[in-house]
Design a protein around this nucleic acid. Structure first.
Lengths: 232, 232
DNA sequence: CTCCTTCCCTAACAAGTGTTTGGTAGGTTA
DNA sequence: TAACCTACCAAACACTTGTTAGGGAAGGAG
């Protein structure tokens, strides 16, 4: 047996096989010809790559480190992927696809403003739980990636994101369930940042479930941490 | 005139000349001998370096890019600095020094829990205003830097930070000014993250002053965004 | 004028980077 | 058995990276 010992799937959870095909931006540049890597192995490798990216940062991560964590050599990765960048692309694209599947379901449910905010926050922490590596990468790198032509869908997603959250907050103010004396844009930024930055300290299987974290956060942001009546 | 045109100081604000000497971690490794770069020029260059670091990320930033932004060539930077890493070190160290000067003053003022939180948040947004590049770098890179022996002071600062905030929150719960039904550790994380992540979107000279942002944030986190009585 | 200090340039180095090419072990199919 | 396919290795490629060494221009001091 000359092959190196292959480590098992790092975080391969059961029941993750959604058939959603991530719309990668690769224009199918006709380079590789007669090779058909299996999608399962691709997902495995993307898992370890995401883990390393999240831990070390994308630029600080060399393909050799990824290959090392996967138990193979650097060049072997190119049997499965076009480039290091395409790994990042696929990680982020699949994450955003699943995220928006959940978000769209919430937004289409026709809930009230407050219930929509609650559902969006809860859904966000669930996504952090399932894709905490991808979220960490997204949170760190999306800002300088979104200007790159390949990653314009990141900026698109951010705009859609803002529209959904801001619209809900405005609706809540109009309906009289949210305060009208706050700058809604600032509120949106605060909420958005706090939710996503949680990926930097959240670890799956920790003390709190995603739902519990969402409850606590919503309780804080909706009712405040101060005791007693409001201070005008 | 063979020299390249030197751009002026990029963000050289007046009145920034605090005499505080940042305790760099360099053990004065006796390499460079007879050269005495001026501290003013160092600060200028550190300013542009911080800007590029913040925009592109530390690892994605090459010394040639920094030199380019400063109007000189890569090698010339080494007249002023030992290494790229020492630039990062000095940027973060001086920022943390000034930050803790402000924090310690607040903590020594003997205010009540609520007033302490308000003062800490306001002070934080002021620091973001004055060091927004350094804060952005700190926010992005501190996690994987703090394990490096040279940057242990980052972890030290984080521990001190946690002690100050958590202690104040606990005091507030004990005094009956903060709610007792929230997980105080989660609250701390939420508040900490929201404050510092603001550096990623805050731009000095924008619509809102640091004090105004602090007011809005404090209003949200203390009283909540929901209207009407609390929901138990 | 000459000496000295400050500040930068030119030109290179060695190590590390992402990527490519050709080969090959082992299983599956015919 | 022979042909074929998947998944990897081994070795190199071109390029970028941080860093260094030596030199020189400008300006002030003597």
């Amino acid at each position: 047996m000359r092959r190196r010992p292959r480590p098992g799937p790092v975080a391969g959870r059961a029941g993750d096989d959604n058939g959603g095909v991530p719309k990668s931006n690769a224009p199918d540049s006709g380079k590789k010809k007669t090779m058909t890597p299996s999608p399962e192995r691709r997902r495995e490798l993307l898992g370890v790559a995401a883990e390393v990216f999240a831990a070390q940062g994308y630029n600080a991560t060399t393909v050799r480190k990824i290959a090392d964590a996967a138990g193979m050599l650097a060049g072997s990765l190119y049997y499965h992927f076009d480039s290091k960048e395409s790994m990042l692309d696929e990680i982020l694209a699949t994450f955003l696809d699943e995220l928006w599947a959940g978000y769209d379901a919430v937004l289409a449910a026709g809930l009230g403003p407050r219930e929509t905010i609650e559902a969006l926050v809860t859904e966000s922490f669930r996504e952090i739980d399932r894709h905490h590596a991808a979220v960490a990468i997204y949170q760190k790198e999306s800002r300088h990636l979104s200007v790159q032509p390949r990653f314009t869908y990141l900026a698109d997603s951010q705009r859609k994101f803002e529209k959904a959250w801001l619209g809900t907050l405005e609706r809540g103010v109009a309906d009289g369930v949210f305060r009208a004396d706050l700058d809604i844009r600032l509120t949106y930024r605060f909420v958005r940042d706090t939710v996503w930055v949680a990926a930097s300290w959240y670890r799956p299987g920790g003390l709190h479930s995603p739902e519990e974290i969402a409850r606590q956060y919503l309780s804080m942001v909706l009712d405040g941490i101060a005791l007693g009546e409001r201070t005008p």
